[in-house]
Simulated scan of single mutants.
Amino acid sequence: MTEQFPKQEVCAVPAEGEAPPGGPAQSGPSEGVPPEVGGTRQVTRDRAADRAAVRAFRPNRRVPAIVVSVLLALLGLLVAAETISGLAGRPLRLVPYDRMLGWAASTLWSNPLFLLGSAVAALIGLALLVTALVPGRPGMVPVRSGDPDVIIGLRPKSVTRALAHAAEEVPGVHSARATIRGHTVAVTPATSGWDKERFAQEVRTAVLTRLAGLNPVEPYRVAVNVKERK
Results as ranks from 00 to 15, higher is better:
7 K>V: 09
9 E>I: 08
9 E>N: 05
13 V>S: 15
13 V>D: 03
14 P>V: 09
16 E>H: 06
21 P>D: 12
21 P>H: 03
22 G>T: 08
27 S>V: 14
32 G>E: 03
39 G>Q: 15
46 D>H: 10
46 D>Y: 06
46 D>W: 10
47 R>V: 11
48 A>K: 14
53 A>S: 14
55 R>Q: 08
56 A>H: 11
59 P>M: 09
60 N>C: 10
61 R>Q: 14
65 A>G: 15
71 L>K: 05
72 L>F: 11
75 L>F: 05
76 G>F: 08
76 G>N: 07
77 L>I: 13
81 A>G: 15
82 E>G: 10
83 T>S: 08
86 G>M: 07
88 A>I: 14
89 G>F: 09
89 G>C: 13
90 R>K: 06
92 L>N: 01
99 R>I: 03
114 F>R: 08
114 F>Q: 07
122 A>D: 15
123 L>H: 03
130 V>T: 10
130 V>G: 13
131 T>R: 11
135 P>Y: 02
135 P>I: 02
135 P>Q: 00
136 G>V: 01
139 G>N: 04
139 G>V: 02
140 M>C: 08
144 R>Q: 15
158 S>I: 01
159 V>F: 02
161 R>D: 09
164 A>Q: 05
166 A>D: 00
169 E>S: 09
170 V>M: 03
173 V>R: 00
175 S>L: 01
179 T>G: 03
179 T>E: 07
182 G>K: 05
190 A>Q: 12
192 S>T: 04
194 W>E: 10
196 K>N: 13
196 K>C: 10
197 E>H: 10
198 R>L: 12
207 V>W: 08
210 R>S: 05
211 L>N: 04
217 V>E: 00
219 P>L: 06
220 Y>V: 04
220 Y>E: 02
226 V>K: 01
227 K>H: 05
